[in-house]
Amino acid sequence: MSVVKSIDIVVPEDKVYLAGSSVDGQVVLSLNNTLINPVVKVELVGRGYLQWNEDVGADKDYSRDVVCNNKADYINKTKTFKIEGNWLDLGTHTFDFHFTLSTRLPSTFTSRIGYVSYFLQASCSSRELILAKKKKYLLVQGTSGIRKDRLQSKDPFVVEVDKVVVYHCCFQQGRVVLRISLVKNVFCPSENITFTTEIDNQTGKSIKRVVFTLYSNVLYTGFTARSEPRTLEDRNVLLRLEPRMEAMPFEVTRITNIMALPSLLPVSCVSLANKIMEIRYELVGTLYLPWSMSSVVARVPVLIGTIPTADPEESGSGAHPNP
């Protein structure tokens, strides 16, 4: 029978930690017998990793797959608990720990290309022999350098449609214009994205379908086995909304729409500490014309940010090409 009955990490379940905040918890160790010369510790680790394959020379006879990857260490802290008398009696023992997160950590992130993850790992050992281990993952929300006054600004961030469809049919002629206006400049995770849509329908037909899609555009940066830099762009649908509406002929229709953001998101346009990836968001409105195969599209960049904590902490981590 093992000396260690169990080891566990106690932290709030499903809590999202803001970069720059504190992680407080306990390591709970249960022993079946007395343990001499124990080493009980807990580690806080944050890592990022990317990997994808590229087809080199696809237009030639000697095409081959090239593996591109990148990695990063964001945080690595260890707390070794002081044990009086250098021994622990049988029963349950509790050890408190406290870690402070750097303000420049990226958000927890997972995709088919890579991940950014954070976890706590508790261990108990004796005479360099590990007797028990326990790992628990954390959710971390990164922050950006956006000032608090900008987050509270009510000035609209308006981007008009870059495409106008002109409709000609029989003796009728008209145009359809789609405009999207955001209620503020920057949105935080778990907030609602509120935006106003204006449809100027100068045709003789009703328009009944418009679809809004929020995309995340990720630019990954990696290296080949020869340390050659490579990039890969990946675009994914984050949210989709199709409201009920009807834009009557020769009228301007205005509607207000709301999209609820997830509680955990990487911030916009900020390299993830070691430049392994950059993330941008874009809201796309597509107005479908029932009498035509054409559509009207409006694109608006959306900024996702958070209020950074005081006293920013410099991070010394960096990206490294895989050897």
Rank of each mutant, 00 (worst) to 15 (best):
Q51K: 01
G145I: 06
E191T: 12
V267P: 06
S117P: 01
T306M: 09
T194M: 06
T143L: 04
T253I: 00
Y137R: 13
M293H: 14
S292K: 09
S190M: 15
C269Q: 14
P229R: 09
E314V: 09
V267Y: 05
K15F: 14
D200K: 06
T143I: 09
G142L: 06
F95N: 08
I304R: 07
L138Y: 03
T213G: 08
T94K: 15
N76F: 09
D14K: 15
H320K: 05
E13W: 08
L138E: 03
K163W: 04
C188L: 15
V40W: 07
D155H: 10
S263R: 11
I9M: 00
P229I: 04
M1V: 03
I199N: 07
V267G: 07
I7F: 00
F99S: 07
N76D: 10
V284D: 02
I130W: 13
L287S: 14
V11P: 01
S107I: 09
M293R: 15
R150H: 08
C269R: 10
R150N: 02
P106C: 09
V297A: 00
V3P: 00
P266I: 00
T103Y: 06
V211R: 06
S227Q: 12
R147P: 01
C170T: 05
I255W: 05
D59V: 02
N70F: 12
L178D: 03
S317E: 01
S125H: 08
K136W: 01
L261I: 06
K77M: 05
F212C: 06
T108E: 04
Q152E: 13
C170V: 06
P12M: 04
G222A: 10
I304M: 08
L35E: 04
V23I: 11
N32W: 00
V237M: 11
P229M: 06
T110H: 12
K82C: 07
Y215M: 02
S153D: 15
T306W: 07
A19C: 08
S263F: 02
F81A: 11
V140T: 05
R175E: 10
K154N: 15
R280Q: 10
D61R: 11
S2N: 15
I276M: 15
Y215Q: 01
Y17R: 13
V300G: 01
F195C: 03
I83H: 09
R150S: 05
D8L: 03
P266K: 01
D65S: 14
L35G: 00
I113C: 01
N69S: 15
T224Q: 04
T143Q: 13
D89Y: 08
G25Y: 15
T103S: 12
V176S: 03
R127P: 00
V3K: 11
R299T: 13
T80M: 08
L264V: 08
L303E: 08
P156Y: 13
R47T: 09
R104C: 08
L90H: 11
V267F: 13
V4K: 05
V159I: 14
L88V: 07
T143W: 02
Q121W: 02
N32L: 02
Y49Q: 14
A132T: 05
T78A: 10
